[in-house]
Design a protein around this nucleic acid. Structure first.
Lengths: 201, 201
DNA sequence: TTGCTTGTTGGACGATCGTATAACAAGTGA
DNA sequence: TCACTTGTTATACGATCGTCCAACAAGCAA
């Protein structure tokens, strides 16, 4: 008589990864207030104690989840950028509209991101991650805008405008999915880009 | 020897109001996860039991706070609208840029709003309030845009674009206050309006 | 002053929270 | 086959959670 094993060992890295992904799913589904050790552990299919073993505390796990989620978004943006070809305008539009296509447009990812926003005020480590994340996003936008011929004096403001528009469209796409489509969001963003570039020419 | 009273009675309506305002402050400072009955009661200067007496549950209190916060924003927008004078374009710009001026630009209010966003997925009552709130906001925008001469076919998309931009600027103004100013946000929004109207003329 | 209404308090209750830790077992090398 | 390492589980602990309710007292009417 051979019982099946009570649990399966995993490589530390991939176990960490699976717990992080479970944390992201819980944040998306239950919000920041529902992300307890036990809920996350249940979602990941492990015992609650394992979370402490790998991350030390729930706060550290949430911070790690933010980092991993941000890295995943960055990778998707970079992928869209390299798939766009050499034309500067095409690169800029691909970079911006990638936020409305998979995998970034995933409602779960958006909801996870909102949960992070809700933690920025209360958690200084999350605030620091947010600042670097958005500074990086805007810096990439400025580079792409400069390549499109935008004068240096207009870069800062244009990057803020685009980043705000993308955030707002992303947010509404998540909170009220039936109101407008991803294609409409892309069209709106492209129109904004066109307006920004043509008024500075 | 006359001891001071142990507590002060209040009119039910104004007591409800003060508890709601305390809830908003806690949501802004501690996020959705920190909004416990005891924390809110401490902030309001009352006993924890009073929250249950007036609102029945914490969830109901949060929903009431959302409703009151939304009403306050609506009132501020209406105020900005009536102070703008008769010109349609001036009314539209006043309506949009009011989000970057007091009392809407208050970081506490913004943080409270983010806490509500984080609850939309987990709480269907909050989601319903969000939908009506934003449908109303966009409807007002469409009316103002139509008065500026925008053709009917462009109203829907233009309202989405403006509402998304305002949300995004509002959000960034709250999460990274040092990155750009309210005046810059207003300028960006006015530029967006100018672009939307001139391309449809 | 006295009695009454009811806003208000403060603690009890079970559930759940985050964290720490001892016991267990899966997989590996000798 | 048999230790041995260590990933994993299960439980315990105090703190805090939301909710409930009996007792208290502030303010008004008589």
């Amino acid at each position: 008589m051979s019982n099946k094993p009570a649990f399966k060992r995993a490589e530390p890295d991939e176990r960490r990864q699976s717990v992080i992904e479970a944390c992201a799913r819980v944040l998306a589904h239950a919000g920041a207030s529902g992300a307890s050790v036990r809920t996350i552990a249940l979602e990941a299919g492990v015992s609650p104690g394992l979370v402490g073993h790998y991350f030390g505390s729930v706060d550290a796990l949430v911070a790690a989840t933010y980092g991993q989620t941000g890295a995943r978004v960055d990778a998707a943006l970079e992928e869209a950028l390299s798939a766009a070809g050499p034309d500067p305008r095409a690169k800029l539009e691909a970079f911006v509209t990638a936020s409305f296509l998979p995998p970034i447009a995933d409602p779960e990812l958006l909801a996870t991101w909102v949960a992070f926003w809700s933690l920025v005020r209360a958690r200084s480590d999350i605030a620091a991650q947010h600042d670097t994340q958005y500074a990086n996003f805007r810096a990439q936008l400025e580079t792409l805008l400069a390549a499109c011929g935008l004068p240096d004096a207009a870069l800062h403001r244009a990057a803020i405008a685009i980043s705000a528009l993308v955030d707002g469209l992303w947010l509404e796409l998540c909170l009220s999915p039936g109101c407008f489509s991803a294609a409409e969001a892309s069209a709106i963003a492209r129109a904004q880009i066109e307006a920004l570039i043509s008024t500075n020419r």
